[in-house]
């Protein structure tokens, strides 16, 4: 059996299903944990940060990334092929006129191969139901207050694509090198619930 089960009703159901699958030889003991570890291996927001830093210093890469992210990722040694099949990635760039924010209203779709496991608030019913309807208020609760004339674009990961936000490069960072720039990028910044 896999580890880390809570005592909630849904956990009990999952545990029961897992036990049945193991009893019938469809799952090896501990296989779920192994698969999760394999899937999450290497997935960390540091990957997304590296992509962003490269896009900030290399205009050509930025253009290629926004046009076809899957084709551009190998330039920084990354890919979206960590799961059963390669997932399509779409990168959306914030600018002075438009701010992007990501959600999966139906479940919790997220670019795990690139950003690692999603934060718990991303999966909460409150975030998923409210950010599509009233993103300005939700962003304010995250401490993000945008000028009234900044358009907000919400992206609902409702199908096969995964998304990542390319945040704006902070002011006063012209002298920084790529690695130092990457250190400025936060996970929330890559989802659109924080400014940098």
């Amino acid at each position: 059996m896999s580890e880390d089960h809570g005592s909630s009703l849904i956990s009990a159901r999952v545990r029961h299903v897992e036990a049945l699958l193991e009893a019938r030889g469809l799952l090896a003991d501990g296989e779920i944990d192994t698969r999760i570890d394999e899937f999450a291996a290497g997935g960390t927001p540091a990957n997304g940060a590296r992509v962003v830093a490269r896009a900030w210093v290399d205009a050509g890469f930025r253009e290629r990334l926004l046009a076809d992210a899957n084709a551009a990722l190998p330039e920084v040694g990354l890919s979206m092929a960590g799961g059963l099949q390669e997932q399509r990635l779409k990168v959306v760039a914030n600018d002075v006129d438009e701010h992007h924010v990501l959600v999966c209203t139906l479940c919790s779709c997220y670019p795990i191969a690139l950003l690692g496991p999603s934060p718990s608030w991303y999966k909460s019913e409150a975030y998923r139901s409210r950010v599509v309807r009233d993103p300005r208020s939700v962003l304010a609760e995250f401490g993000v207050t945008l000028p009234a004339d900044t358009r907000i674009s919400v992206w609902d990961a409702s199908a096969e694509s995964r998304y990542m936000v390319l945040p704006r490069r902070p002011e006063g960072t012209a002298a920084l090198e790529e690695a130092a720039l990457a250190a400025l990028v936060t996970r929330k910044g890559l989802i659109g619930t924080a400014l940098l």
Partner: peptide, 25 residues
């Protein structure tokens, strides 16, 4: 085909000045 389809929030919820882009078959 799967499409990114952009909606004005006002058309979905009756209020809001943002857009929501949904991926639809």
């Amino acid at each position: 085909p799967v499409y990114h389809v952009r909606f004005a929030a006002r058309d979905l919820f009756g209020a809001g000045d943002h857009t929501v882009t949904v991926e639809l078959w």
